[in-house]
Amino acid sequence: MKVKDVAKRWEVIIFLLLILEILLVGIFNSSFLNIRNILYSTTDFAHISLVALPLTLVIITGGIDISIASIMGLTSIVIGSTWSLGAPMPAAIVLGLLSGIAAGTFNGLLVANTDIQPLVITLGTMFLYSGIATGIAGSLGASGYNGIGNFPEGFLSFAYGSVGIIPSSMIYVILFAVFLGLILHRHRLGRSIYLIGVNKEAAGYNGIKVKKVIVIAYTLTGLGSAIAGILLTSYFTSARSDLGSEALLPAITAVVLGGTDILGGSGTVLGTFIAAFFLGVLKQGLMALGVTNNVSQVVIGLVLILAVAAKLGIARYRKMSGNKRISTE
C-alpha cells in the first residue's frame, strides 16, 4: 500500500486526530500527558467500547440496536439479584452473561424473521429489558439509588485490577476487539456481514444464511453489553437497573466516528476501537480542562454531526473532482 493510500484511510485520520487531541489537552494541562494517566482514563469508557465494537457488526448488516443500555442494566440486576438470593458469585456472573446473550439473541431472532425495522424491534425490547430489570429490582426492594451491593472483594477487582500499567478493563476491550476483528475481517462470517449490509437479497441468493448471520451479530452485541454490564457493576460496586443508561449516544457516535456507514455495508472494528478511545480521551481531556461531564455531551454531539458532515463533504468533493478529471481528459 502506498503512503498516500494509507493516509486516505479513515482509521489513520482518526488515529492522527486522537494524537492531536492528546497533545492539545496536554498543552493546557501538562499533567494529562502522563501515559499512566491516559491509560487509566480508559476505565471510564471501557463499557462504551465493549458495546460499540459488536454494535459495529450490527450496523454493518444495515441494522441498529438501541436496547444495548437496557441489556447492561438487565445483566447487572440479574447478577445482583442472584447474588443477593444466595447464589455463588461465579454462578451469578454466568447467569448475567447468559441473560445478556439471550436478550441479544431474542433481538436477532425478531429482526431476522420479520420485516419490521430493527429500530422498532429494539425499541420494544429496550423497554422490555429495562422494564424487567426495574421490575426485578423493585420486587427485591432495590430500585433506589444504592441498588444491590455487598459484592465479594474478588468481584470488585474485575474492574479495578491491572496488568503492569494496563488496567484490566482495557485488556477486556482489546481481547474483545481482536476476537471481533478476526470474525469480521478474517472469517467467512465477516464477509457475509458486509454482503448483507450491501444487499440483503443478493446475499441470500448467493447462499449466505442471512438469518443466521443476523442473529449472530445481535447475539454478539448482547454479549458485549453483558460484559459491559458486569464491568459497570464491578466499577460502581453495586447492581442497578439504570447502569449504562447514557451509553447509547457515545456508543453510536463511536461506531459512526470510526468510519462505519450508518446505512450499512462498510466499517471496521479497528475504526470503532480508535474512535471509542478518541471519545473517551475527549471526555477525560475536557474534564481535565474543567468542563463537566454534562456539558461535554455538547462536544460529543457536535463531533458526531461534524464527523459525518465532513465524511459526506469529502465524498462529494472526490466525486466532483473525479468528474472534472473525466471531463478534462
Binding site: 449516544l249 455531551q297 455538547v298 454531539g301 457536535l302 458526531l304
Partner: peptide, 9 residues
C-alpha cells in the same frame, strides 16, 4: 442523536 447531546448539554 448529535443534537440530543448538544441540547442536553
Amino acid at each position: 442523536l448529535g443534537m440530543m447531546g448538544v441540547l442536553r448539554g
